[in-house]
């Protein structure tokens, strides 16, 4: 897998700082799992962030008693991680292995068993549970585009991340293949079309509703709900 489209630095920075919407964070973490280059960028940003910790002066009054008690308490804890490891593996969803872990954790079923819901001919979707609870305009969903099908032209009122899981599509920006991520904000109008003989399956994370341009598309919007 050669990844050609990466996450923009401003999005990565919000992810590192913990201010990125939870739905967008799932798409970011899923791409990071398969993209060493973006992981390098995250590592660089973490170094930048930690410079600010290095420059934080300790409080003027020392907390010696508190510290001594805390140090003893921590060192009384066994260093082996058995309990925690057990907890982690029980979290693993049934879908593990078919898609990277950060997405698998939000998938009730494996990718090849997704009960697709048809929106219009050639386009079906599958909404995923909302990470971090329901938020207005925020959504996480899978979209399946049949070969040759064109998504009506639209733009975004917030940010949208599209990660290609299978197949590919082409739009005004370029060709997006498995592993590529499109990091779009509200300035971009695009009209993606699945351009091979394979279904294009992507993960779409948004933090604001899409805006469709054409009249037909505007009629479609309540149905798609994105």
């Amino acid at each position: 897998m050669t990844i050609r489209h990466h996450i923009a630095d401003d999005t990565l920075m919000a992810y590192v700082g913990g201010t990125l919407a939870p739905s967008l964070s799932v798409a970011v973490a899923t791409h990071l799992a398969i993209c060493p280059r973006c992981r390098d960028s995250v590592a660089m940003m973490e170094e930048v962030a930690s410079l600010y910790l290095e420059e934080t002066e300790p409080l003027s009054h020392s907390e010696k008693d508190k510290d001594a008690a805390l140090l003893d308490q921590i060192m009384a804890t066994p260093r082996t991680e058995t309990a925690e490891q057990g907890a982690v593996s029980s979290l693993a969803g049934p879908a593990i292995g078919s898609v990277p872990r950060p997405l698998a954790d939000y998938m009730p079923v494996p990718l090849d068993q997704v009960p697709w819901k048809r929106l219009v001919p050639g386009i079906s979707h599958y909404p995923l549970p909302q990470p971090g609870g329901k938020r207005k305009g925020s959504a996480l969903r899978l979209l399946k585009i049949a070969p040759g099908t064109r998504i009506p032209e639209h733009s975004h009122s917030g940010q949208e991340l599209t990660l290609i899981l299978e197949g590919s599509y082409i739009d005004e920006i370029g060709r997006f293949q498995k592993g590529d991520i499109a990091d779009l904000d509200n300035e971009i109008h695009h009209q993606p079309v699945a351009d091979t003989d394979q279904d294009c399956i992507c993960l779409i994370a948004t933090d604001g509703p899409l805006k469709f341009s054409g009249i037909f598309s505007r009629l479609l919007q309540p149905i798609i709900g994105i």
Binding site: M1, G18, P22, S25, V26, V28, A29, T30, L32, A33, I34, C35, P36, R39, D40, I96, G97, S98, V99, P100, R101, P102, A104, D105, P131, G132
Partner: peptide, 21 residues
Amino acid sequence: RLRKEARPEPDPEDPSFIPAA
């Protein structure tokens, strides 16, 4: 703690994880 839910993160033990060359 602020989100009351773990932030999603890549897991190097995940079979789908692609390590750096």
